[in-house]
Structure formats: C-alpha cells, structure tokens
C-alpha cells in the first residue's frame, strides 16, 4: 500500500508579543493512496492550519510533510496536488470560464487541454450555465462549486478540501458527496476537513480527530467505531472527555 501523505512530528507555533501560541502540536499521520480521509475537530482545533502547511500557505515550525515521498513544498509536488480553500473567493471581475483558464495557465496546461477540462469540470460542478458570468455575481454555493472545479483542473492525484460541505444547501451537499465518491473511484486520494460528522461517516475510509492542536485518534473508520456507535457519539465521547 503506497502512502500518499505522510506527516511526521508536525508543530506550528505563532509568536507574537505575548509569547508563543501553539496551534498544531507534534502531529503525525499518514494517508494511503486512494483513500478518502476525513480530518475532524472542533472549531479552532488546528485543521485549517494543518491543511495550509500541507499546501504551502503556512510553514511548519517543526516536522516534515511528504506527499508521494517528496517534500510537500516543491513545485513538482504542487503540480500533483489540488486544493480548495474554506469559503473560497476569487477574482470578482473575472467570469468563471476566465478564472478556470487563468488557473490552467498557472498549471502550465496547454490551451486545448485547458479549454477541454474547463468545460467538463464546469459541467460536472453544475456551472456550465454560469461560465460567462462574473464571479462577483456568484452565490456562496456557486463559489464553492467553482473552487472545487478549480482544484481538479490539474488532474491532481491528491486533493485537499477545507470544509468543502460548509455552507451548501442540502442539494449541493448531495452533489458534492457524489463528486467526492466519483473522485475516489478514479483512484484519487482525498483529504478533507470537516465538522459535519454525518457526511464524514458517509464518505470516509479513515479519519483523524484533532483537538487543541493534538491528534487524538486516527485510523480506519470501521476500526475506530467498531460498528457500535455513530461517529457523532464517538466524537462527543472523545473530544468531550478532553475538555
């Protein structure tokens, strides 16, 4: 079994005038290729900081992050990674199509491939009709869909999604879950943050629970739940006990 993501002893401290403040503490976990991994935790637990360090938006204070055996901060690795941020927001005066083509040129895709993928991804996320609409007219859900399409533009082997299901209406959530399942079928590795536990239980092969910057538990979902309780009951029991 090949390891897609491997995090070892990862810590992140922010120093300001008052002293240092540890957001992520000695985190170690790995995600096998082809799995859907759910990264759970209450608000402020360090989920987003971890994902930012993985995709290179923040820098670890200590520890290493490897993707497919290579350090995560190299350009070759970033070409194989897709990322969708929490509440994504894009260039408001561009149309969805222009934004996709712009992202494609950052990925150094040829014009033909860029146009093909833009059309098919916008179609997949249900934005074909809004392709020529400026992004500033988009609803939150539409932004979310565009963010998802953009993350898949480079045909990445591993996709990081920060709160992908947050703020979507029920139909949107169904759509997103279907799309994530489709990606898994294509053999892609998916790492996502969430605090909507029922969705995680539905989608994930394995999970990690982070609380106050520390990894509390991680492993295959079936092993963690042992078939006896729901993820929600388990989460409350594990995180609640620590409070």
């Amino acid at each position: 079994m090949q390891i897609a993501l491997s995090i070892r002893n990862l810590s992140k401290e922010y120093t300001n005038f008052g002293g240092s403040h540890r957001v992520v503490s000695n985190l170690t976990l790995s995600v096998p290729r082809g799995e859907v991994f759910g990264f759970l935790g209450p608000n402020g637990a360090g989920k987003t900081t971890t994902i930012k360090m993985i995709v290179g938006l923040a820098f670890p204070t200590r520890g290493t992050i490897e993707i497919f055996g290579e350090p995560s901060n190299t350009r070759t690795v970033r070409a194989r990674v897709g990322f969708m941020s929490e509440n994504p927001y894009f260039y408001s005066y561009l149309t969805a199509q222009e934004f996709m083509l712009f992202s494609a040129s950052l990925l150094n895709l040829s014009s033909i491939i860029a146009h093909e993928r833009t059309a098919s991804l916008l179609n997949m996320v249900g934005l074909s009709g809004a392709a020529d609409q400026q992004i500033r007219t988009f609803s939150k859900g539409m932004n979310q869909r565009l963010g998802f399409a953009q993350a898949l533009l480079g045909d990445p082997e591993i996709v990081f999604l920060d709160e992908p299901l947050d703020g979507l209406d029920p139909l949107g959530r169904v759509d997103f879950k279907r799309m994530i399942q489709a990606l898994k079928k294509e053999g892609k590795t998916i790492f996502f943050n969430s605090h909507i536990l029922s969705d995680v239980q539905e989608l994930c092969d394995s999970i990690g629970i982070i609380h106050k910057g520390k990894l509390v538990e991680s492993g295959p979902l079936t092993r963690i739940l042992k078939g006896r309780e729901s993820l929600e009951e388990h989460f409350i029991r594990v995180v609640g006990a620590k409070k």
Binding site: G56, A79, V81, S85, P88, F90, S103, L106, G147, G154
Partner: peptide, 11 residues
Amino acid sequence: RKSIYTVLTKP
C-alpha cells in the same frame, strides 16, 4: 480575499 490561496498553491 484569499484569492492568493488559489494562485500560490499552484506549481
């Protein structure tokens, strides 16, 4: 606006 996230996470 966090639009920089999309750009800087590209290769």
